[in-house]
Simulated scan of single mutants.
Amino acid sequence: MIDALTVATAVAALALAAWCGYAAFRDQPTKDWHFIGMAVVTLLALVQLVVGVVRLAQGDKPHEGGVIFVAYLIGALCAVPAAGLLSLSERTKWGSVTVAAGGFVLAVLQVRLYDIWGGVSA
């Protein structure tokens, strides 16, 4: 894995969570610019998925197994788009809360991906 990409994805996800959390605080639903932010964060997660699969194809092995690593990569890719789709069905502040939660989940998944790859030895 590329540590800088993992950090960038986690920071962008937390920024999205804070941004949507602020919108929820102001009783606002998700707006078009929130969806642009979601697209940027999702693009980072997609790049990470591609990099992770390429690294696996090159023979690099995560410490906790390739299957769980790929499963976390796919989950990370789906976290924010799923929250965005849910926010479309809830056009109140709770839609913004949903996206904020999705961004936070993505940040946590980044930490877990780092651990799975072998970034932290226990």
Rank of each mutant, 00 (worst) to 15 (best):
V111K: 05
V51F: 07
V80G: 08
A4N: 06
P62K: 06
Q48G: 15
W33F: 13
T30N: 08
H63P: 00
V67S: 10
F25H: 14
I74Q: 03
A17S: 15
R55Q: 15
E64S: 06
Y114L: 12
P62W: 09
I74V: 15
L56S: 04
D32R: 10
G37R: 00
R26H: 06
D115E: 14
Y114E: 09
R112P: 00
G59S: 06
K93Q: 14
A13H: 02
G65C: 02
R55F: 13
V51S: 09
V105F: 11
A45Q: 01
G119N: 10
T42C: 01
L44M: 07
A79P: 02
P62F: 07
A18Q: 12
V50A: 14
A76N: 01
P29I: 08
A76D: 01
A107I: 04
Q48E: 14
A10P: 02
A122F: 09
V105G: 02
A23S: 15
V47N: 04
G37A: 04
V70W: 09
Q48D: 12
L5M: 07
A71I: 10
G66Q: 13
A57L: 14
I68T: 12
E90R: 11
I74Y: 01
V47K: 08
A101E: 03
S121F: 11
V99P: 07
W94C: 01
A83T: 07
V108T: 10
Y22D: 12
P81F: 02
S89K: 10
A24Q: 10
A12Q: 12
D27N: 15
A76E: 00
A23I: 05
M1T: 11
F35T: 03
G66H: 08
Y72R: 00
D3S: 06
F104W: 03
L85E: 08
L88E: 09
A101M: 07
A101R: 03
G118I: 09
L77V: 01
L5W: 02
M38R: 00
